[in-house]
C-alpha cells in the first residue's frame, strides 16, 4: 500500500510550464486517449491516461523510472479525440524533454542521438541497405556532412544532453 503524505503538485506545474505540456492540467481522466492508443492495444506497459494520472498526482519518480513515456508513437489519435483538447502527444514530448535533461534517456535513443551527431542520420547506413539500394537501382547514399547539423544541435542544447549522459555512464 502506498501511503500518501503529500502529493507533489509542483510536478504537474513543472510539466505544464514546458512547451507542449501546457494542457495537461485539463485532463479529467476519461480514458479516451487510452482507448484511442494503438500502442496501448499491443502492450500493457503503456497507458497514456495512467501516466497523466501519475503526473497530476506528482509521482515524478515513478514516471521517469519506467520507460513508458518513450513508447508513445506520436500518431496523434488521442490528441485529435481528447474532449478537453489536451495535447496528449505533445505532453509526452514535454515529459521526454524533462527526462532527457535529467539523463533518463533510454539507450536506444542515446544511440539515435550519437548517430545523428556523428553521421547526420538517425538510422546508420548498413551494408544491407547499401545492397538493397543497388539491387533496385538506387544510387549509393552520400555522406550528408554534419557541420551544419552540429551547429544547429549546439544551438538547441542537444549536445549538452548527450554529454551529460556520457559523463554519467
Amino acid at each position: 500500500m502506498t501511503k500518501i503524505k503529500e502529493y507533489n503538485v509542483p510536478f504537474s506545474k513543472e510539466v505544464s510550464s514546458r512547451y507542449g505540456g501546457e494542457t495537461i492540467v485539463l485532463c479529467y481522466q476519461c480514458g479516451t486517449c487510452a482507448s484511442s492508443c494503438p500502442v496501448a492495444k499491443t502492450t500493457e506497459k503503456f497507458n497514456p491516461r495512467e501516466i497523466f494520472r501519475l503526473v497530476l498526482l506528482g509521482e515524478r519518480q515513478e514516471v521517469f523510472q519506467s520507460n513508458a513515456i518513450w513508447l508513445c508513437s506520436s500518431c496523434y489519435n488521442c490528441q485529435e479525440r481528447c474532449p478537453q483538447m489536451v495535447e496528449v502527444a505533445d505532453v509526452f514530448f514535454a515529459l521526454r524533454n524533462i527526462a532527457a535533461e535529467e539523463g533518463h534517456l533510454p539507450n536506444m535513443y542515446l544511440e539515435f542521438a550519437s548517430a545523428l551527431i556523428n553521421d547526420g542520420r538517425i538510422v546508420p547506413v548498413s551494408k544491407f541497405i547499401e545492397r538493397k539500394r543497388e539491387q533496385i537501382g538506387l544510387p549509393p547514399l552520400k555522406s550528408t556532412g554534419t557541420d551544419a547539423l552540429r551547429k544547429i544541435l549546439a544551438a538547441t542544447g542537444f549536445n549538452n544532453l548527450q554529454l551529460k549522459k556520457e559523463a554519467e555512464s
Binding site: C30, G31, A34, S35, S36, A40, K41, N47, R49, E50
Partner: peptide, 12 residues
C-alpha cells in the same frame, strides 16, 4: 465500442 475501463485499466 472501443473504451477503456479505467478502473480496471483494461481496454475493452
Amino acid at each position: 465500442v472501443d473504451v477503456e475501463d479505467s478502473i480496471l485499466r483494461r481496454l475493452l
